[in-house]
């Protein structure tokens, strides 16, 4: 019994981790008022970059960091479009979601002789308790270190938002950029930085899949997890702790899919696969409160404007 429970907890946490990273990324961008639905594309390029760098270098952490770098670079496109050119942020996000996977597959094709998947990596993200191959409870709870990193990131973001002056600035920029501007806060600079941060985080999220949960990049490794993380932010009511909890919930749904679908279960695997997505809709219907998004969300800021 305890065995199954610990297994469930572990798988839930493992599956939530990529979404936590992506969700935090989406959150920090949205908090400053920039809509970022491109996290899916940023996750994908991060997933690929992580796997590729790890394969060629043999070092998982190097891969992890490069994944963040890749996500951040892609985010520069979104930031430039949204902040400098002040274009429609949703459209720019869609463009990122097209360019990200496109670039990932293209470079993959170049590096891996025309294949659209990377070769499996030999060195994955280390586990918490190291290389033990114990069965039972300890073995079950021996999750990737990225799980812990994700949790620390969430906690760190909570501290940032609610206990530091940067957090106050961030929130002000998202709620009333003109007010922040009149007090000397550099609105667009802050937004730019946060969008890049969102790309870095999403990249980490991608790598936590290809270097942790599986061990390679394929065209379907990031299957909508970026979008699910956006939903998590929405009904976490745009808070770090809320988003973390919501991601856990979705991770739980995915864990169920894995656990029940593997064996001889009554529920067909395809129906199980639908679970996380149906759950998202149900939760949104039941729990979303209106009007909690940052007030200036989606509106580009022009100096001297009165809104």
């Amino acid at each position: 019994m305890l065995n199954s429970v610990t297994l469930l907890i572990a798988i839930t946490l493992m599956y939530s981790t990529p979404m936590v990273f992506a969700g935090l990324g989406n959150l920090i961008s949205e908090k400053t008022g920039v809509i970022n639905i491109g996290v899916e594309g940023m996750m994908t390029i991060g997933a690929f970059a992580g796997a590729a760098v790890c394969y060629f270098s043999g070092n998982a952490w190097l891969g992890f960091l490069c994944a963040g770098l890749a996500g951040g670079m892609l985010a520069v496109l979104h930031a430039a479009a949204s902040i400098v050119f002040q274009c429609d942020q949703t459209v720019s996000g869609i463009a990122v979601n097209l360019i990200g996977p496109g670039a990932a597959l293209f470079i993959c094709s170049l590096l891996f002789e025309g294949a659209t998947s990377t070769q499996p990596v030999s060195d994955k993200i280390p586990k918490i308790f190291g290389d033990i191959s114990a069965e039972g409870i300890l073995g079950n709870l021996n999750m990737d270190v990225t799980v812990v990193i994700a949790f620390l990131m969430a906690a760190g973001m909570w501290l940032l938002f609610y206990k530091t002056k940067w957090g106050l600035h961030l929130q002000a920029v998202g709620e009333h950029p003109a007010a922040a501007d009149t007090l000397g806060i550099k609105v667009n600079r802050l937004r730019f930085g946060c969008v890049i941060a969102s790309g870095v985080l999403a990249g980490f999220g991608g790598a936590s899949v290809t270097l942790g949960i599986v061990s390679q990049f394929t065209p379907i490794t990031i299957a909508g997890q970026g979008f699910i993380s956006i939903a998590a932010v929405i009904f976490g009511k745009w808070t770090p702790h809320g988003a973390y909890g919501a991601c856990l919930l979705f991770g739980f749904a995915q864990a169920l899919t894995v656990l029940l679908g593997g064996g001889e279960s009554v529920i067909p695997s395809q129906i199980l696969a639908m679970l996380p997505y149906i759950l998202t809709i149900v939760m949104l219907v039941l729990f979303v409160g209106r009007g909690v998004a940052p007030k200036a969300s989606g509106k580009p800021y022009e100096k001297g404007s009165r809104t």
């Binding site: 459209v91 720019s92 463009a95 097209l98 360019i99 496109g102 597959l105 293209f106 993959c108 659209t116």
Partner: peptide, 12 residues
């Protein structure tokens, strides 16, 4: 796959 990138870039 360059085509995918091209399409994304045009939208961008």
């Amino acid at each position: 796959e360059i085509i995918n990138i091209t399409i994304g870039t045009i939208v961008f």
